[in-house]
Design a protein around this nucleic acid. Structure first.
Length: 510
RNA sequence: GGCCUCAUCGUCUAACGGUUAGGACAUAGCGUUCUCAACGCUAGAAUCAGGGUUCGAUUCCCUGUGAGGUCACCA
């Protein structure tokens, strides 16, 4: 069995998008699983669509996600290359493609075409008007060799086209879909070498996959329709076929169609910026089109390598479900150790305008820990912990706890007396807390102290804790008051801040 | 339109031709609880349709329907 060699071959036409990542992931996993090689190759043969910076984005996105290539470009304070089958950028391999294109001409598997784009457009229009599938009419195939030579000598613009026979059934085997047959009459005489001397995808991919000894061509299933062209090329060259693995598409939640760049926010960078962890993204994507046939859902990269198999790949397209991604993300956020949580979250605090350097690390760690199990995305942190850094703004009415749902029957209690109770509780709590030393504000003490206070004064828990909590954070939903006080306690003026917020709440109610 | 591919809860998906069609996300309810989150329990929710083959089809075959992909000097 030859060495397993896979490749991910994106075009630098923009940010790497999420579907590409899944393809790259499967290629990577399959190579690792078989102790083979996974390589990255850049397919930049379309000069018009090149987007500056996208090559760097692709390379860096893959590295962030730990999909590390054995050969191809990588980033190390600049773009570098490794591997013995280079160059790994197609625009640097032009002579190779031209040589092979010549070979195809000689073998009569391809021919020169001098047709203008105007003629091709017109031809296409006519065919469409007659409801025929648009195809090149092989006009230039009728040219004599003398005519071709003189046109070439006159430097007429030309391309090289694949000469597709009209009467064949082209068969190939796909690892996921099984045998696929496509009549050659439905296959166009594809341009292989463009008039600018660059190859099209079809020539370049076949030449490179062969030259780089690729054993498994794993790619999106939108390529199935053009695979017959590739088969014809392999045959013409007399090269052995790689294993084809056409992956089902990732579908948009909104449209049910193939996820596309036009829908926005599908680039890896967007997800990373929003605060999705690379591990969560990988885990989620791995399960979109593949599953281990067990009930395990959480996989790290090592486990994925161990479990991955091409046989467990799915046939049908999978909808990209953001809710499920959010769930994976929150699972991974919760699993983070405090140092890691701190390192990943602080940049988002900074982004939210919080001057983190002004606060003790212990304080910041405590508030991050408070939110750890509540976050779906890292980017949510700023808004959630804002109240620690500025006076919370809220309506006085929020200080009164909402009626319990259980007591649906009787009309809401008289607001006024409730308000008075809350005010009274807040005031006596204030006095009580003043008598406590600042050290007692740490959680294990403050919880006991306040609970004791409630009990000895025969107060209702909800009528003390709710207003206290709202006074501290100004939010309907938040972590518990003891935890919030505990966080404040790691500030030099923590006690004062807590008391100040309580007295402010009292004033609002008064 | 031609060609190709696909079809199990809303979503991701399990199920040697024999299961009360399983799990997860989401949703709802309950419990815990000062609120939220987390956690625990519970509920509803699916085999696209019609024909075969078979003692028996989610599973195999055919037809239909639906969805997606593709038909460039783009990848």
């Amino acid at each position: 069995m030859p060495e397993v060699r896979t490749r991910f071959a994106p075009s630098p036409t923009g940010f790497l998008h999420i579907g590409g990542i899944r393809t790259a992931l499967y290629e990577f996993l399959w190579a690792r699983k078989n102790n083979g090689k996974y390589l990255l190759r850049i397919e930049d043969t379309d000069r018009q669509r090149l987007v500056p910076g996208s090559l760097e984005n692709i390379v860096q996105s893959l590295e962030t996600l730990r999909i590390v290539s054995d050969e191809g470009p990588y980033w190390d304070k600049g773009l570098k290359f490794r591997g013995e089958f280079g160059p790994y950028i197609q625009s640097e391999r032009l002579p190779i493609y031209q040589k092979y294109a010549q070979e195809l001409i000689e073998k009569k598997a391809a021919y020169y075409c001098f047709c203008s784009s105007e003629r091709l457009d017109k031809l296409r229009e006519e065919q469409q008007a007659q409801k025929l599938p648009p195809k090149y009419d092989k006009l230039c195939l009728k040219l004599s060799s003398e005519e071709v030579s003189s046109k070439l000598a006159a430097k007429e613009a030309h391309v090289i086209r694949l000469n597709v026979p009209s009467d064949r059934i082209i068969k190939f085997h796909d690892h996921i879909h099984g045998d696929i047959e496509i009549p050659s009459k439905d296959v166009d005489d594809q341009v292989l070498l463009k008039s600018d001397g660059f190859p099209t995808y079809h020539l370049a991919v076949v030449v490179d996959d062969y030259s780089m000894k690729i054993s498994h061509v794993i790619r999106a299933d939108e390529w199935i329709a053009s695979t017959p062209k590739h088969i014809l090329l392999y045959e013409a060259f007399g090269w052995p076929l790689p294993v084809f693995v056409h992956l089902p598409a990732i579908l948009s939640q909104a449209t049910g169609k193939k996820l596309s760049k036009r829908e926005g926010d599908v680039s890896v960078k967007d997800f990373l910026d929003k605060g999705y962890l690379p591990e969560a993204l990988i885990n989620f994507l791995a399960l979109l089109g593949w599953n281990p046939k067990t009930e395990q859902e959480i996989f790290n990269m090592r486990e994925l390598v161990a479990e991955f198999s091409l046989d467990k790949l799915n046939k049908s397209g999978a909808v990209f479900d953001l809710d499920k991604l959010d769930w994976f993300n929150s699972m991974y956020i919760r699993a983070l150790k405090i140092e890691d949580l701190f390192a990943r979250l602080v940049p988002y605090l900074v982004k939210a305008g919080i001057q983190t350097e002004k606060y003790p690390k212990e304080f910041l760690e405590k508030i991050l820990l408070l939110e750890q199990s509540r976050l779906k995305k890292l980017s949510e942190i700023g808004e959630r912990v804002k109240y620690f850094f500025e006076e919370p703004q809220y309506e006085p009415g929020l200080l009164c706890p909402p009626a319990r749902k259980a007591s649906a029957g009787p009309p809401p209690a008289e607001k006024k007396s409730e308000k008075e109770t809350i005010l009274k509780n807040l005031n006596s709590l204030q006095i009580f807390l003043q008598t406590l030393s600042a050290e007692k504000f740490a959680q294990k003490d403050i919880e006991a102290e306040i609970k004791n206070f409630i009990e000895s004064n025969q107060l209702k828990t909800g009528e003390v804790l709710w207003p206290l909590r709202v006074a501290l954070c100004g939010l309907e939903a938040s972590p518990g008051p003891f935890e919030i006080i505990d966080a404040f306690a790691s500030l030099p003026d923590g006690k004062e801040q807590v008391l100040k917020r309580i007295s402010r709440a009292s004033e609002m109610l008064f």
